[in-house]
Design a protein around this nucleic acid. Structure first.
Lengths: 340, 340
DNA sequence: AACGTTTTTGGAAACGTTTACAGTCATATT
DNA sequence: AATATGACTGTAAACGTTTCCAAAAACGTT
């Protein structure tokens, strides 16, 4: 392994000067820079990151915790983030957590074991943050939830305005004459600080505002955000309520399951029941019928979160909380009842 | 930050002894161990990983390179691997690469920058390995391709027997009376050392053996492994050849695109054209109709690769090459022409 | 009691960097 | 000519561990 010492010897300069060249400092003569850079090039020298980090007491890692496995939506954000971070020369260390694992607990553990310089939470349960985030001291960012109300100074958050967006989703149904709407997805307990709950509340709020009756016991079926669970929940919903003409699935993955469940019961979409999803994964363009959905801006989510985190890692800044735009995508899964 | 020095001071022992306790060595008295462990506990001390690694000249990272973005199949393997590795206390640093990026080149770069103790390639192009893998010296494993023929002693590989499995896929069609079969997916160039190419060859071989005519120019449409590309390729195929009764899509994602393309042209599946995919992602159970496919054993792939890599990291062993079982899944997308 | 063994311990060097500090040298200023 | 200034460079001390080596302690054997 070639070290800075070898470069010093080979170039005839001291290790101090070599170090200065490596770190692009100004106080080095042009001549020294040239010579040393040549030697570095020739020797194919790479500074040992451990030594560097030891001295600087940081690691060059950013830890990413993805809440939920097989979550196409979050994985899409992860990919975008990784790609974007790479342009800064930053790498991510990824952990996928199932939905029951406490991500804050896990993050704390990762911090002590690996000492990352920043943490990105892709999804998460606000409850866990409220309870235990004070133990985490590195700059962090939570994506897909808002931590504005928690008041941690090292935790930023970026999300779609879920409540508003969910409202737009049901609004889309309402405008097309649907007055009996079912909602599928979200945590069983209606737990506070959970994505599904916020979307549910936004939807219910809009229903109320529009004067549409909604009986949560009969018209809501909770389920995890997976195709299978969407399928099962749809089956339950059909048993509970036969009058529904429109369904809002709280995630596209759930919607795919719903689609299949309705089909298996020979319920036509959109002729018999209309369906709108949430997230805007690629897949909605290829379902039969194409799925209407609310598309979150994953690029913006990824970019904003990374920009903010990097800024806060390098300069001590306060956390910020932001939202990104969304769009309702039409699809073919919604019937306009007004046209009858 | 509490350091080993603090623990030494607080416990009344020397740094050396504390270090020995931390590393669970035998040559420490029971008494010392107890006392020191108590102090460590009380102080909530975590050894600085950078210092540790500096001394041991390794990092505790395993680098994973995922070839291809938005690849549900590989991401599923990634999740399984990460989860399994975590049980060993190992973490992964992930990079997603688009299909054009040279993963071996990238790995070499990552090695010099971050010095991982092992590398996992999820997908990859054999050509790149043949050309440049000799530069990589850490234990590595390639999943989804076989590197048996390359003869690198530090590169294991695990894969499904793609050729055989693809053969089974077309066989499934052939047995149901299909004699005019189209194949969609795989690299444009029919490039050597590419997943699609191997599957294509396996399929063509089986067609030949069964005495089914196959004109690669007319009955094969190459495309990238994405839904959109599957859609477009299906459109091309329909223009080129009107007589096809069965299609083998070289990945499930492609199949989903094909499904949608056929539907848009009012071609019924399986009545007009039958379709079988490859990979066995969750999704195939929720398409309309449910998609027949060849299911690769992702659990086995993940587990074998990790087991082997960990073994080779800790003991110097030669690389091995293995395959995992596969299964043809029936679905609803295939018509039995014999029944007419 | 004197000696060997074995077990346990402390001291100190090493790992490869960064950086504060002090030094050298040329040039400009008086 | 003496001095101040500034640009550059080298030296050495850190950073928090691990581990080699030798010292000390404990024990058993003669």
């Amino acid at each position: 392994m070639t070290t800075i010492k070898d470069i010093a010897r080979l170039s005839g300069y001291s290790i101090g000067t070599v170090s200065r060249v490596i770190n692009h400092r100004q106080d080095v003569s042009e001549e020294a820079r040239q010579i040393i850079e040549k030697v570095i090039e020739d020797e194919n020298f790479q500074p040992n990151s451990n030594a560097k980090m030891l001295k600087q007491t940081i690691t060059s890692n950013i830890a990413v915790l993805v809440k939920g496995t097989q979550n196409v939506f979050l994985e899409g954000i992860l990919e975008r983030m990784q790609e974007y971070l790479r342009t800064f020369g930053e790498y991510v260390s990824v952990s996928f957590l199932d939905e029951f694992t406490n991500e804050v607990e896990t993050a704390a553990q990762i911090c002590s074991e690996r000492n990352p310089k920043g943490i990105i939470f892709l999804g998460g349960n606000l409850h866990f943050f409220e309870e235990g985030f004070s133990r985490i001291t590195v700059p962090s960012v939570l994506v897909t939830e808002t931590a504005a109300g928690l008041g941690f100074d090292n935790l930023s958050s970026f999300t779609t305005d879920d409540s508003e967006a969910a409202g737009m989703a049901v609004d889309y149904l309402i405008r097309r004459g649907h007055t009996h709407i079912g909602i599928i997805g979200g945590s069983a307990s209606g737990e506070k600080g959970e994505v599904g709950t916020r979307r549910l509340q936004g939807a219910v709020k809009r229903l109320k505002e529009s004067g549409i009756p909604f009986d949560q016991d009969k018209q809501f079926c909770s389920c995890r955000f997976a195709m299978k669970d969407g399928y099962d929940a749809a089956v339950r919903m059909l048993k509970k309520d036969q009058e529904i003409t429109g369904i809002f699935a709280l995630s596209d993955t759930v919607a795919v399951g719903v689609l299949r469940a309705l089909r298996d019961r020979d319920i036509r979409i959109p002729e018999d029941i209309s369906l709108i999803g949430y997230d805007g994964i690629e897949h909605v363009k290829y379902t039969i019928p194409r799925l209407a959905t609310v598309k979150q801006d994953r690029d913006a989510l990824a970019k904003k979160a990374v920009d903010d985190l990097l800024l806060r890692i390098n300069y001590s800044r306060s956390a910020v909380h932001g939202t990104v735009p969304f769009r309702v995508l039409a699809g073919e899964s919604i019937a306009d009842l007004n046209k009858h």
